[in-house]
Design a protein around this nucleic acid. Structure first.
Lengths: 189, 189
DNA sequence: GTAATTTGCCTAAAGGCATTAGGCAGCCGC
DNA sequence: GCGGCTGCCTAATGCCTTTAGGCAAATTAC
């Protein structure tokens, strides 16, 4: 019985690819075993269970996303940073729909705390350094930005903005303009 | 063999309740059969298959949501309308998390076109009548509002804003203020 | 009021995914 | 080259989906 060289690492990466190909919720231990041409039970030496697999894919996606965002943010500030950051999310979701869906996977608090989720929040806050916001407005703005980015990307990927004018790209640009304006003129209480 | 009186209607409604109790993706033909104390196969006279069930729950949720929104909008304009509309989404998602998740279920284009989805878009546009926007800015704004509402509600229900100050309710109010400000000062190209 | 028909729920069966237990063979250190 | 660890296997169970075919209850027809 030839040994294929399964590892948790390789399984996670393959799982992420699988997610991009067939959708995150179609990612299954069985499908993954098929992809390695190996019996299903063999995976259970490397994965606790199906949820473990999904969690690992989610963590991978969060890391990748955070890395890309950190890259994009380097050397930028203000609207430039805002747009770069936003585009990272949108582009990632378009390139890797399955991974993006994975990044939304509900993690238990323990795992979430140890994930790259914190980096995302930190980076969003960093963007706001280019604007003149103090607490608690900064937190409100962080939540707004998170909502817009996630909301837009998820509606877009659900096909919400296709087949209707104007172009989604156009709306995206104008929405980033609008957010920039809003952050520069954040209304007081 | 006593007849229980299954109908597609009743199954759909029970499915929606089940979704709220255990989560939309835990809604299963088997669980529904259990709830009616009936054998699984019996449901297949009333439902084409599992996806059919989920689609029906999704359509139900979209209708309910549109009805509530229409109610909330009646007699309101401007920021008042904006806030009322937004609160409908947020409250619905909190009251009926399973149904709200169902409303996000990906429908095939045919079904989507026949759904209450169009009413939602129309109502969002109606809100913007209280602001001074013309095409294509109106469409950009519709997309922004959809993104914020959906994004915020979905992040909030994923637990994103709990366990951290300030209160989510506070952020929500301030974000609605900010959107109102933005719509009244929408930046030109 | 009963016969005929429709139809609702059933039993049976096959196929898929998740998960666990226990076995054998390949690779490692010696 | 021998013993042990570890990786992948077979086997088995349980739950979910879906289809085919049957019987009895409700409905209609007389």
């Amino acid at each position: 019985m030839a040994r294929v060289g399964l590892t948790t690492e390789r399984l996670t990466r393959a799982g992420a690819e699988l997610a991009d190909e067939v959708g995150f919720d179609q990612v299954t231990v069985s499908a993954l075993a098929r992809r390695f041409d190996v019996k299903v039970a063999s995976l259970y030496s490397h994965l606790k269970n199906s949820q473990d697999l999904k969690t690992r894919i989610a963590l991978l996606a969060l890391e990748e996303l955070a890395d890309r965002a950190a890259d994009a943010l380097a050397g930028r500030a203000g609207k430039d940073a805002l747009a770069a950051f936003a585009n990272v999310y949108r582009d990632y979701a378009r390139e890797h729909p399955g991974r993006y869906a994975a990044a939304q996977f509900r993690l238990d608090p323990q795992t979430a705390a140890a994930s790259a989720g914190g980096r995302h929040a930190q980076m969003t806050r960093a963007i706001l350094r280019g604007y003149d916001l103090t607490e608690p407005d900064q937190t409100h703005a962080v939540r707004l930005l998170g909502s817009v980015f996630h909301g837009y990307v998820s509606l877009e990927s659900a096909g919400g903005f296709s087949h209707s004018a104007p172009d989604s790209q156009e709306s995206w640009s104008r929405i980033l303009d609008a957010l920039d304006t809003l952050l520069r003129n954040w209304p007081g209480p």
